[in-house]
Computed example of a mutant assay.
Amino acid sequence: MNNKAQKLHTFHIPVMGLSYTIDSPIKVAHYGISSVISIVDDELVEKMTAFYSKKFHQPYQEITQKIEDYRAKRITNYLNLVSDIVQKKFQDFKSDLCENKETLEQYINMLPNQSEIKKGLQNFWEDGYNLKNKVVEYLENHLSPGAIDVNIMTKVDKENFVKNEALPTMYNDAHAALRGFANSKLNSSIILSAGMNPRLYSYFEEFSDFFPDENNVLKKKIILKV
């Protein structure tokens, strides 16, 4: 039975300001811990893309303010980079769990006592790792990385201008952030906080990922923080 839908932990890391959790998924998602990124500040997002591209030896091309729709493109680019890094770290972590008994023991101690997955891993650890192929199969069927969720403060939806001429509403800050998330490869949730913004809410209709697919599955979900 595939139990990847079962959460590994009983907590998540909520959004903390604009920067405190901007890279939390890179640090903790491979352990199965979910966290929330604020995606309103595209300048910060671009700096983080440059930093982590260099750190993980990924190609990087700056998205400058001269590029059309640069806010949304910066956010999409960063979220895709975070997703790729998390997946790589998750695969490496699973390999380490299979090869290193000490790593497995440390991870078991991280999991809540009531976790069925913890009990399953404890059985392998106590059996002395004799059936490595069974360990690999168990990890594949039960472990998954934590969610890379995002947050938009709905009232932070400033109009933007080019040569003193207001751009269309879709280029407002929160609208651009939403578009950046919608166009990313993430399969996660967007958390809307800080008030009501009917124009922003109606903008969700423009993106297919917020609608169920042919299997009635949502790729991206909406959470209202009240």
Rank of each mutant, 00 (worst) to 15 (best):
L121I: 01
L121P: 00
L121E: 01
Q122E: 11
N123I: 02
F124G: 09
F124A: 11
F124R: 08
E126Y: 11
G128Q: 02
G128M: 00
N130Q: 12
K132L: 08
K132R: 09
N133P: 03
V136I: 11
V136S: 05
E137W: 03
E137P: 00
E140T: 15
N141V: 02
N141F: 05
N141S: 13
N141H: 07
H142S: 14
H142Q: 12
H142K: 11
L143T: 07
L143S: 06
L143Y: 06
S144K: 15
S144E: 14
S144M: 11
P145K: 05
A147D: 13
I148M: 02
I148L: 01
I148F: 01
V150K: 06
V150G: 03
V150I: 12
N151C: 14
N151Q: 15
N151I: 12
M153N: 14
M153Q: 12
M153R: 12
T154M: 14
K155E: 02
K155A: 04
K155D: 00
K155F: 00
V156I: 12
D157S: 15
D157Y: 10
D157F: 09
K158V: 07
N160V: 15
N160R: 15
N160I: 15
N160W: 13
F161D: 06
V162M: 04
V162K: 08
V162Q: 09
V162T: 07
